[in-house]
Amino acid sequence: MEIGLGVYSGECLPGEGVTPTQVIADSISQIRLAEEVGLDAAWITEHHFLPSGYVGSVLPFAAAVGAATSRITVGISVALAPIHDPVRLAEDAAFVDVLTGGRLQLGVALGYRDIEYEGFGVRRKTRVGRTEELCRILRQAWGPGEVDFEGRHFIRKGFGVYPKPVQPAGPPLLMGGHAPAAIDRAARLADAFIMDGGTDSDAFGEQGHNRGLFGRVEGAVRLYREALERNGKDPEQARFYMTLGGFLHEDGPDAAWAAVSEGYMYTRRVYGDWYGLPPETYADWYPDRMSPEEHRTRRGEILLGAPADVVPVLEKLREIAGPSLHVMFRSKYPGVPHETTCASIRLLGEVRAKLVGEA
């Protein structure tokens, strides 16, 4: 089992009093710390056109992280595939893989925000086709010969992409999704499946809350393994990645929630907007406006506490998903001070050591 740190987005809260330069500098410092305490990966995510400073330039961000570290996997979770030119993405990803000595992993997704498609001149209805063709072009571009592809959305022929990635097959491609077609697409085109453990897409868009984590994971693992088998792949070789919200504090769950509640509820309001909930639904999603019952519900959506509180949950997830499980544990939230985040990362290193038997 692996534990990665995520997700890094470059965001800050209004009135937080930090510059984008400082946010990125702190982020890279935190990722260096993650490497020092033994974590396996650091994950960067992509969105566009947000005044919070959400980073759209994920490959340059990944290059900066790669140059500042020496061992840790540099992961993208996820790039918004339909808005990218496949050859440009292939070149940028290959360069980061070379820069890092073969440490890049690349997640790709369809996206769902209309403004992002419109901003890059892409029609939403083409997102599935563009994503599938992009994945095939990436494989060709990273392979030994020239690119020779003619599809509905892209025609790319007669050239090679250089330098080639360090990893012989190129950076591993990761894909996710919750609909049956998305799970099948991941089985066909990708090297591993990403599950969003932080936001339950089936339920959040209807009610703004998540269902139980273990049941969701059991269902996703079963469906992905079935999809692998349908596509002629060994389901026993399934690689499963999961984003999971949480925060660690040496004084336990109450102290962890107090430290992270403002930042976490900010992310819930953002997702409420993105998922199209009525604004009045999430207007009071602020810790000082929430009832005790709402606080209990929200606390239950993420993993909180000291290492002893978190390890049993991760052990249960490993039982469900198998030893290839990689948890992208989110300890980075806008509004949480740098040193508080660093303290959580140090404790996450202890969690990782306990899970792999090093503590």
Rank of each mutant, 00 (worst) to 15 (best):
R318G: 08
G158T: 02
W285Y: 05
L80E: 00
G53K: 05
G145M: 00
E315R: 15
I31M: 07
G6A: 03
S9G: 14
H153Q: 11
L244A: 02
I28C: 07
E2F: 09
V78F: 04
I183Q: 09
F154C: 10
V37E: 06
R139K: 15
D288C: 06
G56L: 11
I320V: 15
E236G: 15
V147I: 03
F204T: 07
P163L: 04
P163I: 00
T126Y: 12
L347R: 00
G143Y: 03
L59N: 09
G145F: 01
V37R: 01
P287A: 01
G56C: 07
I137M: 02
L347I: 12
G102Q: 04
V78A: 10
G232V: 05
R130N: 05
L325F: 06
Y8S: 02
I194G: 08
R123A: 12
V166C: 09
A192C: 00
P168Y: 08
T19P: 10
F159K: 08
P60Q: 04
Y333K: 07
A169S: 14
V7H: 01
D92N: 12
K332R: 15
G198F: 12
A359G: 14
C12N: 14
P334L: 01
V122F: 00
G6S: 04
E229C: 07
K332E: 15
Y333Q: 10
G197T: 02
A141E: 08
R216K: 11
P172Y: 06
G272R: 09
P334Q: 11
E11R: 14
G335W: 01
E146A: 02
P144M: 05
A109H: 02
A353I: 10
M328N: 15
V313Y: 13
Y112A: 11
R269S: 04
F95R: 11
E150D: 15
A283L: 05
T297N: 10
H326G: 13
R299N: 10
A256R: 07
S77Q: 11
S27P: 01
I24G: 13
V108G: 03
P323F: 14
R225Y: 04
E293F: 07
E146L: 02
Y271M: 15
I76D: 03
T69R: 08
W257A: 03
Y224T: 03
L304I: 09
T73D: 11
S70H: 14
P323V: 14
P278A: 13
Y333R: 07
S331K: 10
E146W: 03
G198E: 13
D288A: 12
P312E: 06
E132A: 08
S261W: 08
E2L: 10
P253F: 04
T45M: 14
E293L: 14
V58R: 07
R130I: 05
